[in-house]
Design a protein around this nucleic acid. Sequence first.
DNA 1: CGCACACTTGAACCCCCTCAACCCAAGTGG
DNA 2: CCACTTGGGTTGAGGGGGTTCAAGTGTGCG
Lengths: 243, 243
Amino acid sequence: MHRLKRIVSASNQGIAHCVTCGARQQSVCGAVEEPDLDRLATIATEHHVGKGQTFIEQGQPATEFFNITAGTAKLFKLLPDGRQQIIGFAGVGHFLGLAVSQDYAFSAEAIEPLQLCRFSRAKLRGLLDDLPMLEQRLLQTACDELVTAQEQMLLLGRKTAPERVASFLIAQDHGATSCHDPVDRIALPMTRAEIADYLGLTIETISRMLSRFKADKRIATPSSHAIVILDRAWLEALAAGLN
Amino acid sequence: MHRLKRIVSASNQGIAHCVTCGARQQSVCGAVEEPDLDRLATIATEHHVGKGQTFIEQGQPATEFFNITAGTAKLFKLLPDGRQQIIGFAGVGHFLGLAVSQDYAFSAEAIEPLQLCRFSRAKLRGLLDDLPMLEQRLLQTACDELVTAQEQMLLLGRKTAPERVASFLIAQDHGATSCHDPVDRIALPMTRAEIADYLGLTIETISRMLSRFKADKRIATPSSHAIVILDRAWLEALAAGLN
DNA sequence: CGCACACTTGAACCCCCTCAACCCAAGTGG
DNA sequence: CCACTTGGGTTGAGGGGGTTCAAGTGTGCG
């Protein structure tokens, strides 16, 4: 992964930055308590990844794990002819390195300026042997991701285009449970192309579905990367496969 | 899960059956060695499930985990109108209970007569606290399943019907690495309907693709539940998205 | 201002689904 | 033994949902 070293710029190397890390409670690192936090900090280095840059390449040996502390990344698989399937979007607190055998099974690219923590795989393994709580937390996280992946299989295999887009909007809304706005304004960091590659559709279909929802007064679109849900019950019913 | 108790018939309760279990080395139980095997045996009970019977129901509280020791099950999710997505087939050694939060996220039904081990969730949790090797093995298994799930997302989201069927045949063949027959005879325990629900297609499309492969001399079909691969390289290329 | 890029909208096409008929093997019962 | 049923599988014809191709509309940024 010498390619990575050019892309990411390190900072805070070797400092006990985990103590003050705002993303810790949202991530697997939340399983590590004060006395052991130093050990975690010594094996983790913080890095920055610019928008559009790939920091995990499918098929490369999986020697490093990552934890996102700011920004959003897309995780995706490619077919030789360029067809792309986005496996998921990884936001703050997301741990990358679970779906890994010998090599990375997917690629990862920053869709927003990204801040992340990097662990060497071997060092993390050593830490896991001493901290069963951390391994337990990783297992829990892996199970949660499996449930999400299976839900996505249902979407990709059996749902129609409008159902997929409705499911996506509802899921994005649940993800952004930050503040309880009276209006359900959803910020979409990704482009239409990325939504399409996530839902197994095309750019045009995404655009058409959003236009249809808008015409039917189910949503409003103050800007192309912000959406307001007007008729949540109807969208949820559609996402669940009713109607 | 009182419904389960009617379906499964218990045997070998409380006996140290794990020592002689033929499926142990193929499953997560392989992580438990001789001295601790008794403890595993005391919390596990063996059961039989008849073909076509559902032993995990999506949405029910997840109080029991299972380990398959003989036969095959389908794991699936349903939409209200009956659309079904099979998220995987579980054979000998497969552990059921990873993709679980509070409730089961999917249903499971025997497609062949099934033999399985049942664990109470609470008791397994207790055992895990004492046997870090077992928890480590579970994490490894969960990661493998995640990789498989992501590959399936690529298939469902981006591959064409012929590519899906080719991918399925190649995967089934790799799964059956039992004996090195000169001919690659694949036994398919599942029906066309189940293949279709697994690949996000219809019965008719599965049938048509198999007929086409057969007409093109890529495969042979001695019976409808056995398939011989004649042109492996071509199928693999198709499955990978080339051609 | 003007270029690039993302997004939208329209029209034609095509892959796969739907619907329907048919085949075949395995029961089942008179 | 044969008539009948049942369930899985195959094959054909037609239709539709989503893609493809193409043109047009913003919109941010040098």
